[in-house]
Each structure stands twice: as structure tokens, then as C-alpha cells.
Design a protein around this nucleic acid. Structure first.
Lengths: 232, 232
DNA sequence: CATACCGATCTTGTATGCAGGGCCGATGCC
DNA sequence: GGCATCGGCCCTGCATACAAGATCGGTATG
């Protein structure tokens, strides 16, 4: 149904969630237009949508770039996720068994992606757990909001070199699910609070944004494309 | 600084927040283009932005309309606001005196608008209290999200004929501010929870969506343009 | 009289063209 | 040799033009 317009948005957002698109990457209108086989107009519409969602930004006569959240913006993003996710847990009364089933299945996919070494799927699923949870609670509005915040979180984690282990995150997800299954929403909220805090704390060792960093890296690791997205 | 593009967005959002634009109202591209003295392209960009923010929607070859949230969407919106606002209160540790000062000044404006009978300013300020609070807490990201949710709340309140009194809302705002000033964040969260519940409960008497309603109203209030925006 | 058909008109969807402005390399000057 | 300047190239910003589709009116027919 929603093919023509949302497609190009989805592709970009999915790429961000899968860590295939990094913060600061340029998104030229003409380049995307030829890639998708459409006019610049359609690409521009998609980019404007993504800008409203806080995923890309335009510099007036320069071009479109994936957002590079500052330290402050990163903190705001984590605080927002913290507030929303603990807030929704404090709002709902009971948790249906179907919710647990969805989350259990999601956990299985997470483990599968981690085991198979698919870093894209791993990144996507680890972030999607939270979106999935809120959506399972029946609030699509909040899920959409959280998805965009998650995209920014992924960008932030790459920007500030998160050291948080995937297995650790997955374990924490499972513990949260266990508490939800037990009906202990307060404990689940506490675990969620700690979990988000862990992810945020894992990137406190910020990347020391001195200009020499880029130069040094460029001189040692030859080409302009680091081996994160070899295919494109 | 941000004049050219955001202006048209702001005008529409402000009109929604001020209850000057109702749910279901048509927003023709050409009409807005001539009104703002720009091309359809710019108008379209603004509408696409507003669509991403969940304020308007486009029906494929029909036109742009202000969203008419369904019962379920209305509940989702209130739950989202509930989760966010109680969540942020549970997230922050201390509340700076400057925050209290901002809220006190805001309360003064609310009372002023209520006393003067300026229904537009009243609607705007009553909703803006919540946005203002989150922004005063220092989280602009969450404040932007809440602003869009507030816009939908205003549309919902008009759609389902809210009976919640403005003075009552303002009083509740003041009690919340008092608890924040006292440093009792838990009590503030409880009051906020009750406050949002009150607003939501006040519109449970839904508007009986029979088609005769529109027809009857149209037959009584003559022309095609209702007298909501006489100047523009 | 009711209904089906059909064209006029208005709406959005999409492409294209041109203008404004920034970046970068070449060139001339100090 | 270093530096300022200038011109070409490329990118976005914006308007316009055309195409596709939907609504609504009139008209003809059963």
C-alpha cells in the first residue's frame, strides 16, 4: 500500500537503524534520485520528512547530512527515551500474554543475529526491542516517536564509540521481559532505567573530537570509506 | 533566522494550538500558496513536514486535511503525553529555581488570557504549559515531541467537545508548579497524572459522529467559509 | 422521476528548468 | 614560495509546467 513515498524514507531509516549509514554522511539529492530512479522532487520530500523526524539535516546551500548529535543532544535523546520507556511502564496496568510472546520471539531473533554475526541485523534488532515493546503495548504513536529516537541513539552510539556489548544488552532485554511476564511493572521499569543508563554510560568515553583524530585515522587506514559498508 | 521555511509551519501549528484551525479542515496547496505569496512547492514542503509531525494528512488525489484523531488515536495521544510527562518528572533529580520562575510567569499569562476572554491565547497557553515545563527542564527534543502531541490534544478536545474548564486546568497547573517548587517530584507526577486524566475524562462524552451534525451546522451557519479566519 | 453516463474543473503528484550561493582549483601578484 | 583573488562547477532553493485522478455538475435514457 504505502510504496511510492514511504519507500525511500524506510530505506534510509532502516539503513540508519542497521548502522549502515553513519552520522555525518552526505545524502545528495541527485545521487539518491538516480539511485531510486525518481526525480529530485520525491527525494527532497523524503529528506524533508526525515528532517522533521530529526534524522537528517540540511545546511542551506551545502547539502543534506545525517545528523551528528552533540553531547547535549545525545543526553537529551537518552533522557527522552528514559522518560518515555519508564513512563509507559508506569502507565499501563497489566501486560497481556501476547506481549510477552512478541518479546520472546524478538529476543530469539536478537540471539540469532548475534550468533550469526550479522552486525546490521544485530544493531537493528537491539534498538527495535524497545520500539517493539511499546508497539506491543498498543501505542503506535509512542512507538513511532521511539523509533526516531532509537535511530538517533544508533547514530550516537557509532559517533561516540559505544562499548556496550550486544550480548549484555540482549541479556538485559531478557530480564526486562521476565519482569514483564511476572507482572512486576515496577521492577521492569527499574531494569529498563538501568539498561538505558548502561547504554548511555558505555559511550561516556567520548571520541575526543580533535581534528587530528580524523587525519591520523585517514593516514593509517588508507581509503575514504572505512570498511563498514563494503557493498555500497 | 529561521524565517523562510518554518514560518508557514509555525503559522499553521500556532493556529491549531490556538484552536483557530479545527480537525478536518481543508488546507489546499494553492490556497495557502496565494495566502503566503509563495509557490505551491514551499507550501507542499511545509505540509509534508506537518504530516510527518502527525498534524495533517493527505488523501491521495483529494487534498490535505487537518487530522481527525479517532477514539483509539486520542487514547494513544493521551497515554503518550501521560507517559512522557510523568516519565520526565521521574527522570530528573532536582528542579532549578529558574524553572519555577518560568512556570510562575506562564501561570500568570494563563490567568491573564482566561480573564481577558481571549480564547485563542487561552487554548494556546493551557497546552503550552506542559511544553514549557519540559523545555524548562532542558530537554528541547522532548519538548518538540510534546508540542506535536499537544497540538493533537487540542484537535481532539475540539472534536470531542471537551468540557474541562480552563480555570480548573490552570488551577491544576498551579498545584503542579507548587509541588515542583517544594521539590516533591513524586507528588508533582501524581498531580500531573491526575490532571491529564481529568482532561481526557472531560471528553469521554463523545460527539456522536452522526452525519447530520455537519449538515445541520452547515444549514445554520450559511456560507462555505465559517467565520473563523475573517482577515486571512 | 430515477439513474447511469460523461465531461468540466479542481485537486495533488511529479518532473524539469533556472537562479542563488558555496566550494575548490587555477592564476596572478606580492 | 606564499597568499589573495577570481572563475568554473556543483549543490540546493524555488517556481513553473504538465500529467493523473477525483469530484461534481449536467444530460440523456430507461
Amino acid at each position: 500500500m504505502d510504496q511510492s513515498s514511504p519507500t525511500i524514507d524506510r530505506v534510509i531509516v532502516d539503513a540508519v537503524l542497521s548502522s549502515r549509514i553513519r552520522a555525518g554522511m552526505r545524502l545528495g539529492e541527485q545521487a539518491l534520485a538516480t539511485l531510486f530512479g525518481v526525480s529530485r522532487t520525491s527525494v527532497r520530500e523524503a529528506l524533508i520528512r526525515l528532517e522533521a523526524r530529526g534524522i537528517v539535516q540540511v545546511i542551506p546551500r551545502r547539502g543534506w547530512f545525517v545528523v551528528e548529535p552533540s553531547i547535549d543532544e545525545a543526553q537529551e535523546t537518552f533522557q527522552a527515551r528514559h522518560a518515555i520507556e519508564t513512563g509507559i511502564l508506569g502507565t499501563i496496568a497489566t501486560v497481556e500474554p501476547s506481549v510477552i510472546a512478541i518479546l520472546r520471539d524478538h529476543l530469539r531473533q536478537e540471539r540469532e543475529a548475534i550468533a550469526s554475526g550479522d552486525v546490521g541485523a544485530r544493531s537493528y534488532l537491539l534498538g527495535d526491542f524497545h520500539v517493539c515493546m511499546v508497539e506491543a503495548f498498543g501505542n503506535r504513536t509512542l512507538a513511532d516517536i521511539l523509533r526516531d529516537l532509537t535511530a538517533r541513539t544508533v547514530l550516537i552510539s557509532a559517533l561516540y564509540q559505544s562499548s556496550h556489548d550486544a550480548t549484555e544488552s540482549c541479556d538485559e532485554h531478557e530480564r526486562i521481559t521476565d519482569m514483564l511476564a511476572a507482572g512486576d511493572l515496577g521492577a521492569a521499569a527499574d531494569l529498563m532505567s538501568a539498561h538505558i543508563g548502561n547504554v548511555e554510560a558505555a559511550l561516556k568515553k567520548r571520541v575526543a573530537h580533535d581534528p587530528l583524530q580524523d587525519l591520523r585515522q585517514a593516514l593509517q587506514i588508507a581509503p575514504k570509506n572505512a570498511g563498514s559498508n563494503p557493498s555500497e
